[in-house]
Design a protein around this nucleic acid. Structure first.
Lengths: 346, 346
DNA sequence: TTATTTTGTGTGTTCGAGCACATTTTTTGT
DNA sequence: ACAAAAAATGTGCTCGAACACACAAAATAA
């Protein structure tokens, strides 16, 4: 039978007191060889699993976890993360965990560093960081390491041996997925890879996607396509893009590496004469609207909500239930079109 | 501050004993209006959340949950479910829950009923059923209702007011998703909708998918396509299918409504002269192999593992944490091609 | 041999909710 | 007015792990 054994059971079986069993289990010394052997004998026979409930009941320690991400009011890309964090808060509200969210300005490394200082003042047990700035992240992680504060990262992967865990997506592969879909929609023609981002802070982010996208076409040796990269920045997006479309009459497809596909779709909707396929990222409302209108063909779902949720929950479960924190959690690259979109928006 | 209040705290604040507070919280009567008001006043001010850990520690009741599904040795479609159930067992092994799996022969209604009898003998607190047989399911659910045993269903949706909760996918919509992908691969020609199933027990299942698939083409008024339905049964699959391909030179695409796409792909791989697109269901190993070879274009992921996991975990969380059981959980219809498949196979 | 560490072992309390039971207060009946 | 019943309230124990502390049994020193 799958009876649950308690420390008391073990003590009785070994003919010692529960205190001695406890000392053996946590090897905090002061146990005679005789007692040790007797207890180990019992432990070898039965399958002891400590009751996590009782363990957590006793400990009065309140674990504090801080999440650091860009202010969703500045970049709405991060809005789903807030929901994911909220979900984790709700799930663990019954336990002695406090989860705090801190925002920084994604345009400012200074804001990033300042917010980190504030977090350190809270002396949390762990932090979950969206590491937008490479160099600054490595610096700050070193600080956390020295203070013995556990660090988890999400959204974009930062190289560095001090970074021990990450939740996110394989961006290179997501570029390849986009390419495979584009190759299905089109048979030939010019394809533009467009990076739209006011702050080019997540350049690596977008480059990885482009690499994957280009690599797919290179590897397959598919002829008939020509790929062009286009970088658009805030005030001139429309004028520059319209000029580009004008200059390239053979443009048949567009791959947008950020969540701003709706900007391009909106501009294109005014040019009824051209039929251009669009593939973008993220199920933000405006993107889904254009998906429903048929102007955007596919969206790749980055599932930020789940990223944030998993980032927090792995930390919480580490403290509460002593679970290991996985080195990398790669979320699937969800392919979204107008038919299945409704199941992903939450 | 976000201090966690205990019953004792409330008692002190309201000037009563913890017993009285307990009676108010669980409204088990015998409380004077005066005390009730005092306690409610306190409860309105503070935000009391009972400590689930302490609650579960006390209760010695062991909840028993039985899962009923077809024997995966007979139909390997169900293998991922076993993993999903195993995942739930691991997650909840620290709690006083026992999760038992029972198999039935999917070809035999008698086996289905017999296994249910066995489950009833175990007098579980809840069951999760894969309700393959419509009529028999309704009967058995009535029995469970009378015995006050909670019932949850997964995989295929059964109509009936006694069925209170379901975890699965919208099959009609998944047919539409398949159609939209087919419409992307092909521009015209004949498309076959193939049902392969030794036992035609899940006919409704497959019909829903076909309906969705056909509806997509009907609704869009796309000309140039002709749809044909083909039913193939075990010993004659190859001969009948080959004859069909022979007779229909314009056949360009095949939609297989079961997880047996690999059977068709395998037969087609011998006919090198014909280029026919295949869309099927489920990430079984053989299907993924043909996906990698480029013979299968898309697979729709039904995510049986997660279906089973969620089916069990909602029940467990209902008992342990008093969470509500959602009426229907519709999992997203994941679109899989060769580029993103690796992220979904577990 | 007796005093004094050192080492080993057992006992008892804590955590918070839940519930049985004891005790007090109020109400009802005569 | 007083007993008896009913209602209201408080007390105390339980669950299992963790750990402090008390105590006992050897080991060493004087």
């Amino acid at each position: 039978m799958d009876k649950k054994y308690t420390i008391k059971d073990i003590a009785k079986m070994a003919g010692v007191s529960k205190g001695t069993v406890d000392r053996v289990l946590h090897n905090r010394g002061k146990v005679s060889p005789t007692a040790l052997e007797k207890i180990n004998e019992v432990l070898n026979v039965i399958d002891y699993e400590p009751n996590l409930i009782a363990r957590n009941l006793k400990s009065t320690k309140v674990y504090r976890i801080c999440v650091l991400l860009p202010d969703p009011e500045i970049d709405s890309y991060w809005l789903p993360c807030v929901n994911g964090i909220q979900e984790a808060i709700t799930e663990f509200k019954a336990y002695s965990v406090v989860i705090e969210t801190h925002y920084f300005n994604p345009e400012s490394t200074k804001s990033f560093l300042n917010t980190n200082e504030n977090i350190i003042k809270q002396s949390p047990d762990a932090v979950l960081i969206a590491p937008l700035f490479h160099k600054e992240t490595l610096e700050i992680v070193k600080q956390y390491d020295e203070l013995n504060i556990m660090v988890n990262t999400f959204n974009n992967q930062i190289e560095g041996e001090s970074i021990k865990s990450f939740v996110g997506q394989d961006l290179y592969k997501s570029g390849r997925v986009a390419a495979s879909l584009m190759n299905l929609i089109l048979t030939d023609g010019q394809i533009a890879i467009i990076h739209i981002d006011e702050s080019l802070k997540n350049a690596v982010h977008m480059q990885e996607k482009e690499k994957g996208f280009r690599n797919y076409f290179d590897e397959k040796k598919i002829s008939g396509f020509s790929l062009t990269t286009l970088k658009l920045k805030h005030p001139n997006v429309e004028t520059k893009f319209l000029a580009f479309v004008e200059e390239n009459p053979n443009l048949k497809g567009i791959f947008i590496t950020t969540s701003k596909a709706y900007q391009i779709a909106s501009i294109l909707s005014s040019i009824k004469t051209r039929k251009i396929a669009i593939i973008g990222y993220d199920l933000v409302e405006k993107n889904v609207n254009f998906l429903n209108q048929g102007l955007v063909h596919f969206l790749i779902h980055q599932n930020q909500k789940r990223q944030a949720y998993l980032g927090v929950s792995t930390l919480v479960e580490h403290f509460l239930f002593r679970k290991d924190i996985p080195e990398t959690i790669l979320l699937p690259i969800d392919i979204i079109n107008v038919e299945n979109a409704s199941f992903y928006v939450s």
